[in-house]
Every structure is written in C-alpha cells, then in structure tokens.
Amino acid sequence: MIAARQAYRDHLVARMALDSRLACLDSDTGLFTGVDFGADAARYLNLGIAEHTLIGVAAGMAAAGWTPFVTTMAAFAASRALEAVKIDVAYNALPVRIAATHAGVAAGSLGPTHHELADLAVMRALPNMTVVVPGDAAAVPVLLDQLRAVPGPVYLRLGRGPTPPLPASAPAPELGRLQPLRGGRRAVLVATGPLPVLAALRAAELLAAARVDAGVLQAHTLKPFDTATLLEWTADAELVVAVEEHWRTGGLGSAVAETLAENAPAPLLRVGWPDAFVAEVGGQEHLLDRAGVSGAAIAAAVSARLDGTEL
C-alpha cells in the first residue's frame, strides 16, 4: 500500500527524465528527501517555507514556457497562497500543476492549522482551474498522464498516508468523467477522495444487504464536472448522496447540488465535515468517522432518509 503523494513523487521524477521542460518546485515539504534527480537536479528548486513565492515563481516559469509542478500542503496552497493561485496562475491560465498534500483531515492530529476542508470549494470556483482527486495511488500516474493534455492549471488533491487500493474491478479513471464503481439506482452515492470512496462502497454493500439498491460513482475530477453521467445515473434515484472529506459547503456536495438543481432536482444528502473546525485530537480515519464519513454511518443515514427506518 503506498500513498498517493508517493506515487505522485515517483511519477514526477520519472517524467522529468523524459521531458526537459518540467520542473519540480518544492516548499521544503520533505517529500523529495533522498530522491536522486540525477542529471535533472537543476530542475528541482526548493523555495523554502514560502508558499506565495512558490506559486509566483511557478507562474513566472510557466509564462516562460515551462511546466512547473509545485508541491505543498493543501492548507497552504488553498489558503495561504490562494491569492497567487488566483491571480498569477488561474487568471493567466498557466500550466502550473499544484500538488496539494495532506488535504482534508489527512494531517490528523496536527489539527485545523494543517487541515484543508475548503480547497475543493475554492479551487473549483477559480476559472481555468482543473481539479483532480485521485482515488488511490494507482490512479495518480494514470490521471497525470491524461493531465498532460490540459493547457491550464491543475489542482491535484493528495492525502498524506497510504490508503487501500480501490477494487481491481474498477475501470481505469478517465479525466473529466465520473467513474462508475458499483451499479445501483435507488440510491446513488457520489464520492471523492480515497477514504470517502471506500466508505461509499462499504455503505453500498451494507445497503445491498438490507435490499437497498445503491450505486457508487467516483468523482476523481471535480472540475470540469461530469454533468451527463451524474444525470444519467440519478434519473430514477430516490436519493443522491455526496460523500467527501471536505466541509459540506462548496465541495462535491455543492457541485452535485448545483448540477441536480439546474437540470433534474432530486433529494440530496451531503456527507462531509460539518460547519465547524475539528475540535478533538484524532487520526484521519477517527476524524472521518466522527464526521459520519464511514460505511456504517452513511448506510444508516441513507436508510433513514429512504424509509424513515434505521438499518
């Protein structure tokens, strides 16, 4: 089991050897400690603990024809350095790739200063931005290869530790498309991020055992959002459920709500972090469990909404 951010690192280092216009811009994250860039060492720049400068330098390099990959924590990319992301990168539609680690509550007991529960809201609001959340480590190189065709900026949301692989039966992720992971139409669960997707799959299993037909779609691309697939899958749904490691406002739940409300209104349940900062010590899974982002909690909530009963 490897972490998505490790898969990102390994893929980037391999790609740099093949593409002389790629640069790796780091903010002293430690992710590249011990990496041998070999002949490409000059293209690894450690800007120090300076996230605004990190993003600005990346924009300048991109304006000069380079494709910089910047690495920082999601909390700093989407909050501290946000103005540089907005003005220097998104406004200019420059091909900067922002790899944002420790997203959601992946930083666990490091606390709210290092959590990032608003990045999907912020990044998908920015014009020109593509927003991608790989579901597991294996999806990272697949999506990064597809992202080569994207001329504008990309926000790549990554976690911290290793997460289990998604089922081998899952089709290969296709950028910009919702990825069907499990058939089922009475309730349709749309999930983003490794642990929420696994929670949605577990919830669907529990619901199936209770004779509730529930499907699961993975949203590895938040922007552009795959309206067509969502509407096709939810046409007959009694309940649509959005599951994410994010505040319930502005992220996947909002993207789904907007899409449904504008096209084919359907009852919606948003599962995610409530409108509050994390107020207790806990690892990522503990915190997600507290927010109701677990198979059992989601299944119970869906069942209650569908039948007014508890599982």
């Binding site: 640069a23 605004h52 600005g56 330098v57 300048g60 304006a63 000069a64 103005e83 220097d88």
Partner: peptide
Amino acid sequence: ELPTGSLGHGLALGLGFACAA
C-alpha cells in the same frame, strides 16, 4: 507580460522568469 496590481506579486513572478531563463 503578466497582469499585476495586487501588490507583492511581481518579484516572485520575476524570479520564476529568471529561474527559467
């Protein structure tokens, strides 16, 4: 070359151009 106006951005952008050059 690039839009500016929110103060404090230009030096990082210039540094990016300089690194690329």
